[in-house]
C-alpha cells in the first residue's frame, strides 16, 4: 500500500520532468535559451559539484542555517516554556514579543548590517530571528493547551512543579513545539537564500545572484532545486521526529 502511495507521489513529478525536457528539447517555448532542458540542468549540477562551487556554497548556507536555527529554536523553546508555565514571565515579556514578532526576519537585515556588519554573524542572526519568534509562540500554545486536569492530577499524586513540567507538560506540548520547528525549518532555508541574495557574498543565495548576472538559467535552476530539496528534507526530518515521539499516544 505504501509503495503504491509512493508511486503515486513520484508519478506526477516524473511526468512534470518529462514534459519539461520535451518542451525544452523541441523548442516549444520562444526564447528557449532561458529555458534549458532538465538534462542540461543536471549536467550543470554535476559540474558545479565536481568543481566544488555548489558544495562550498551549499555548506556555507547549511552551517548558517544549522547554527541560526538551532540557537533560535533552543532559545525559543526555553523562552516559550518560561512564558507558558509562569504567568508572571508571560505578562512581562508577551507585549515585547508581540511587538517584535510581526517584523519579518528580512526586515531586520538593514539594521543588523549596521550593527554587526557583513560577515558570518549576520545570516546566523537573521535565521535566529526567523526561528525564535514562531517557536516561542508554538511552545506557549503547546504548554497552555495542556489539559489543566492533568496538571491537577499530577499535583494530587505528589508531583512537584519541576516534575510536572518535565513529565506532563513538556511531553504533551511536544506536538505544538514540533509544528513550530517543522514550519520554521523550511522557512530558515527560504530566509537564508533571500539574505544571501541581498547582503552576503557567499552561499546558495549569492550563487543564485551571480548566476543571474551571468544569465546562467541552468545554475539558477540548480540553486532553486537545492533550496527546494533542503526545505523538503528539513520539514520531513521534523515531521518524522514528531511522529516517532508522539504518534503512539495521539
Amino acid at each position: 500500500m505504501n509503495r503504491l502511495k509512493f508511486g503515486w507521489g513520484i508519478l506526477p513529478v516524473a511526468i512534470f520532468l518529462a514534459i519539461w525536457e520535451g518542451v525544452s528539447r523541441l523548442n516549444l517555448i520562444p526564447g528557449h535559451f532561458f529555458f534549458p532542458p532538465l538534462s542540461t540542468v543536471m549536467q550543470e549540477f554535476y559540474y558545479l559539484i565536481a568543481n566544488g562551487v555548489l558544495t562550498d556554497n551549499f555548506l556555507r548556507s547549511l552551517v548558517r542555517v544549522l547554527i541560526g536555527f538551532s540557537a533560535g529554536s533552543v532559545a525559543g523553546i526555553g523562552m516559550g516554556i518560561m512564558m507558558g508555565y509562569k504567568k508572571t514571565v508571560n505578562k512581562a515579556l508577551y507585549p515585547i514579543i508581540s511587538l517584535l514578532y510581526p517584523i519579518p526576519a528580512l526586515g531586520w537585515l538593514p539594521i543588523l548590517m549596521l550593527w554587526v556588519g557583513i560577515g558570518e554573524i549576520l545570516p546566523i542572526m537573521i535565521i535566529f530571528i526567523c526561528s525564535f519568534f514562531p517557536v516561542i509562540y508554538n511552545t506557549i500554545t503547546g504548554i497552555e493547551s495542556v489539559d489543566k486536569k492533568l496538571i491537577k492530577a499530577a499535583k494530587t499524586l505528589g508531583a512537584s512543579d519541576r516534575h510536572i513540567l518535565y513529565t506532563v507538560i513538556l511531553p504533551l506540548a511536544l506536538p505544538n513545539i514540533f509544528t513550530g520547528l517543522r514550519l520554521e525549518a523550511g522557512m530558515a532555508w527560504r530566509v537564508i537564500i533571500a539574505a544571501e541574495m541581498v547582503a552576503i557574498p557567499t552561499g546558495i543565495g549569492a550563487l543564485l545572484m551571480r548566476a543571474e548576472s551571468l544569465i546562467r538559467v541552468d545554475i539558477i535552476i540548480v540553486c532553486l532545486m537545492v533550496l527546494s530539496a533542503m526545505c523538503f528534507l528539513f520539514e520531513r526530518f521534523f515531521l518524522c521526529l514528531e511522529l516517532k515521539l508522539t504518534q503512539k499516544w495521539r
Binding site: 492530577a153 499535583k155 494530587t156 504533551l172
Partner: peptide, 17 residues
C-alpha cells in the same frame, strides 16, 4: 502532594503519553 490524598477526576485525567 503532601496531603496524602488521591483524586479521581471526571475525565479520568490519564496521561496520554
Amino acid at each position: 502532594k503532601n496531603r496524602d490524598i488521591a483524586m479521581v477526576f471526571q475525565n479520568y485525567a490519564l496521561y496520554p503519553h
